[in-house]
Design a protein around this nucleic acid. Sequence first.
DNA 1: ACGAATATTAGACCGATCGTCTATAAATGC
DNA 2: GCATTTATAGACGATCGGTCTAATATTCGT
Lengths: 211, 211
Amino acid sequence: MTEIHTEPRRRGRPPKRQADAFDTRDALVRCGMATLTEKGFSATGIDEVLKKVGVPKGSFYHYFESKEAFGHAAIAAYAAYFARKLDRWLLAADRPALLRIADFVDDAAAGIARHDFRRGCLIGNLGQEMSALPESYRDRLEAVFADWQARLARCLRAAQAEGALAPEIDCEHWAAFFWVGWEGAVLRARLKRSVEPLHCFADGFFTALGR
Amino acid sequence: MTEIHTEPRRRGRPPKRQADAFDTRDALVRCGMATLTEKGFSATGIDEVLKKVGVPKGSFYHYFESKEAFGHAAIAAYAAYFARKLDRWLLAADRPALLRIADFVDDAAAGIARHDFRRGCLIGNLGQEMSALPESYRDRLEAVFADWQARLARCLRAAQAEGALAPEIDCEHWAAFFWVGWEGAVLRARLKRSVEPLHCFADGFFTALGR
DNA sequence: ACGAATATTAGACCGATCGTCTATAAATGC
DNA sequence: GCATTTATAGACGATCGGTCTAATATTCGT
């Protein structure tokens, strides 16, 4: 988080090499992702991000029209990051489908603990702040949840195909249930500074599924 | 919330009548409760509260040492308010215990809908903001959850006594599960502007209990 | 009854934050 | 080579959040 920025960031139009064309922009988005995951939108100031990345205001408003636009970029980046993470666990074909979900939970718990319970879920954070946020965020956030739900439902159907889950179970419904409760578990884990709520919720989820 | 304040609020030490001794302070706390329930701590400005109540800044800092102290007062008031609400539903001796929980859920859903999904749970809001909040809040918030958990566990034990719940069920554990997931459900309901997540979670909770 | 103590209102004040705007600098392209 | 493009630099103003001092009205002690 408090990365020292080595490259002094030369002024003027940069050389052509496409690689770091979006270097600065990327650094800003990545930092925004981390910061919003930690403190949410309202509590995060532009200047704070700027200082961490080592970029002056001029650059920020060159890449983003406003703080609101910056938030959208961070949401998109987080959604992509999380989708990859989700796939990594939920599509691991060498593990039983239900265990893959448990693996994801364990990984998430480890991740939260590794960041000392300061970071939660960017989508959850902004979701809870919705009343104080530009209305433009609502649909984007909800769309991310819908995406996660679809990925999880697919994994549950795989469990059904394996015979690990009763065929009459509504996978979409239980996938929805998972993400509804999961955000609460993340919130509580951060407050308690313990992964216990995450496992508490996951256990309950599997118990409910088991019938 | 946008109540016009009639009494012009005279200056100087007020006459003795004990009744409205805490009038101004109460109004501030009540408004703070509503506002924090809606927008959380970081996104709520003192000026905003002041304007709504019709009180100048000086009064605020007469009654509260800081915004932090104001937050503590709001938490305490909300905890008391919610405990009363919880008891009203969970101790209704004329209803089966499990139905009382369902009643609470229905009431909460109606309440959130009535406020147009702008208001959520003050404790959940601040819990999620914890990383950006004074550390002094952590224990208070967690204590409120512990209180709610105890009240719900008691109701679950009543269900066991009625024979509506298997005796081997760990009531404390499932009460913990409920509040973990419930906060997620509230967050999602607000985002979605629908009570569906609340019922989705409650149904899952009862399903899990049913085994 | 009068001055000291108390309770409350009033709002000035300072620093932080957000977003804009102009200037500067370095590369590209015709 | 000069106009154009791309990017950094950071001053600036408006606004707002939170603190603090002054002013005002009441009660209390003797």
